[in-house]
């Protein structure tokens, strides 16, 4: 009886403390905007058209400062992603100039991109990127969604979180106020406003629409195999449940010999 009380009290006590403190773990305390992403949950999937629009936003707005060096153009055509057609992927890739070489003369040269090439970066290296952006490095976006607490919700909230700074809040030159950035200061100016992009599929390019689309695209970029992972996971767990039941019944059948021998 005494043990029972002790055990359960500590369990309750621990979890209450945990819940109370857990928001303090890291990052800003401001509650993020929660979006019901299509890729959330056990059966989450990416919305193909949103991914394609998101790529357009990345390409036309973000890619001037943010690299995505871990992605290849062919990823845009692979299953589970925006699933552009092969022709579209070749066309997209060929829009970019890729450095290649050395040729037989020993010189580096430039050629149109191919699907097998990695995404071209706006700057040759981290230092050039920082220097061109007031000393702040615009992070590479390949795994950005996984590199921030709050994931897709954080990215979306940040994009929607620009506001006027409150009374008395000091902002240096070139720094902007953002409700969700740690410390509320961000060097990036508000990147999205209504009509920044004219969507190829005709969707109205409101701020929320673009923010949702580009966040969905970034979520895919960070986790291109999410759909396969979810699909495999459902199958694996169902299989394991079946096998567990079989093993359980076998075990019970075996042990009935021992119990009956008492």
């Amino acid at each position: 009886m005494k043990t029972y009380i002790f055990k359960n009290n500590f369990i309750i006590g621990f979890f209450l403390t945990f819940l109370f403190c857990s928001s303090n773990l890291y990052g800003s305390d401001t509650k993020l905007i929660k979006v019901d992403w299509s890729f959330n949950g056990i059966t989450g999937k990416f919305d193909r058209s949103s991914l394609q629009r998101g790529y357009q936003v990345y390409n036309e707005v973000c890619s001037s400062c943010h690299s995505m060096r871990l992605l290849s153009y062919r990823n845009l055509g692979e299953k589970g992603g925006p699933e552009f057609s092969i022709e579209q992927v070749k066309a997209i890739a060929s829009n970019f100039e890729v450095q290649d070489g050395p040729n037989e003369e020993g010189e580096m040269f430039v050629r149109p991109g191919r699907p097998s090439d990695k995404f071209v970066s706006p700057y040759p290296n981290v230092q050039a990127a920082s220097a061109a952006n007031g000393g702040s490095y615009p992070p590479d976006m390949s795994v950005l969604v996984k590199a921030r607490k709050g994931g897709a919700d954080y990215i979306y909230s940040l994009l929607m979180g620009y506001d006027n700074s409150p009374e008395g809040f000091e902002l240096e030159e070139g720094v902007h106020y953002n409700k969700y950035m740690d410390g509320n200061k961000i060097k990036m100016a508000k990147p999205l406003s209504e009509g920044s992009v004219t969507y190829a599929d005709g969707t109205k390019a409101t701020e929320t629409q673009m923010a949702k689309d580009v966040t969905t695209f970034l979520a895919w970029a960070a986790e291109p195999h999410l759909e396969a992972r979810h699909k495999t996971g459902v199958r694996v767990i169902i299989f394991l449940i079946v096998l567990t039941i079989l093993v359980y019944l076998s075990m019970k059948r075996l042990w009935s010999r021992i119990d009956s021998e008492q």
Partner: peptide, 10 residues
């Protein structure tokens, strides 16, 4: 393994 798979896949 069921618990393990929960983490891996979801």
């Amino acid at each position: 393994l069921i618990i393990f798979s929960g983490f891996i896949f979801f």
